[in-house]
């Protein structure tokens, strides 16, 4: 079955919702609020990779249909306390799509603790971090929405658990064009969204001073090799006064990071990195930092479409990475 995955008007989305089918919807808060109640989860974001290319719009929503098989999906909110049950509650055979509001306590809790959740990596988990228009940063909070009740929240995570029949398999993968550069090995002693101290090739150092002294392009993420998966931690900024470096995802102790090698042409590189897939992509999202740093507005990333987000989730929180789900 070919499912819908496209940018559309509120009216078109409302019509689909009223059909009773299940959806994962991204859009600006003002348009999400206009949608009728139904079988959908949503998150705020006005940036998209549409069929016509990178697009910013506050008037339309990106609708991803969720194919339903024998059993209906389950939609629920999680708060800070119940969030660790996310994977345990997931179906034994199926997958979960989750949306996390950026900058919320749930965002940081998920980022730091998800790898240790019960059943993590045992059940497919994909999702994205809701955001806002960059002009609205600090003025409006990113939110998620539970379509079944119409509740909008900047304090909850919304998830949809989708059971699959035994002959179907949900596969989650990533496309990350960044590779570790040939520079120094960087490690940290703590978990967190910020760091002052680090070890450069095993020697104690100030990370802020290191970045400044080496004129590091902070648009390039830190990259770590997780048994072949390149996992980024993007640099948010450097507070020169306190010598604190902030990140968009947590750094973890004992993980060896390197500053990424520069990526030349993102669009062509992306095309080259795109794997040959036997089945279509059911859901995907890409990072706002890739959108900004690679000037993706108006440009296409092959046939892959979806929201451009404040963080991507393929089991755990990722940065500057495209994540996608296929059902085979």
């Amino acid at each position: 079955m070919k499912t819908i995955a496209k940018l559309m008007s509120v009216g078109q989305a409302a019509e689909l919702i009223n059909s009773g089918r299940y959806f994962n919807i991204a859009g600006d808060e003002t348009v999400l609020k206009q949608l009728p109640q139904g079988n959908w989860i949503g998150g705020t974001i006005p940036y998209f990779m549409a069929e016509e290319g990178g697009t910013v719009t506050r008037d339309r929503v990106f609708v991803n249909e969720i194919e339903v098989f024998d059993e209906p999906p389950t939609i629920r909110f999680y708060d800070l306390e119940s969030l660790p049950q996310l994977c345990r509650n997931a179906p034994e055979h199926g997958y979960t799509v989750v949306i996390v509001p950026a900058f919320s306590p749930c965002h940081s809790a998920f980022a730091e603790n998800a790898p240790n959740y019960e059943d993590m990596y045992m059940k497919p988990l994909i999702g994205w971090v809701a955001g806002v228009h960059l002009d609205d940063l600090g003025k409006v909070s990113p939110k998620v929405m539970m379509g079944t009740t119409g509740e909008l929240s900047d304090q909850h995570v919304v998830a949809i658990d989708v059971p699959l029949p035994p002959d179907k398999f949900a596969n989650i993968d990533i496309i990350n064009l960044f590779r570790p550069g040939d520079g120094d090995t960087i490690t940290f002693d703590v978990t967190g969204f910020s760091a002052t101290n680090c070890k450069i090739n095993g020697k104690d150092a100030s990370f802020a001073d290191y970045l400044t002294a080496n004129k590091v392009d902070t648009r390039l993420p830190l990259v770590a090799d997780y048994c072949g998966a390149m996992i980024n931690v993007s640099i948010k900024g450097i507070d020169e006064a306190t010598k604190r470096v902030d990140f968009y995802a947590p750094i973890f102790p004992a993980v060896q990071y390197r500053i990424a090698a520069p990526v030349g042409d993102y669009v062509n590189g992306f095309q080259a990195a795109l794997p040959q897939l036997d089945t279509g992509i059911t859901f995907s999202c890409n990072c706002i930092l890739n959108y900004l740093h690679s000037n993706l507005e108006g440009k296409r990333t092959a046939q892959i479409t979806g929201p451009i987000t404040f963080g991507e989730i393929a089991y755990q929180l990722l940065n500057q990475t495209l994540v996608y789900l296929t059902i085979s």
């Binding site: 790898p115 990596y121 993968d173 997780y226 048994c227 998966a229 393929a314 089991y315 755990q316």
Partner: peptide, 8 residues
């Protein structure tokens, strides 16, 4: 991917 992350 899940095995890469789990094994790590």
């Amino acid at each position: 991917l899940s095995l890469k992350l789990l094994l790590t």
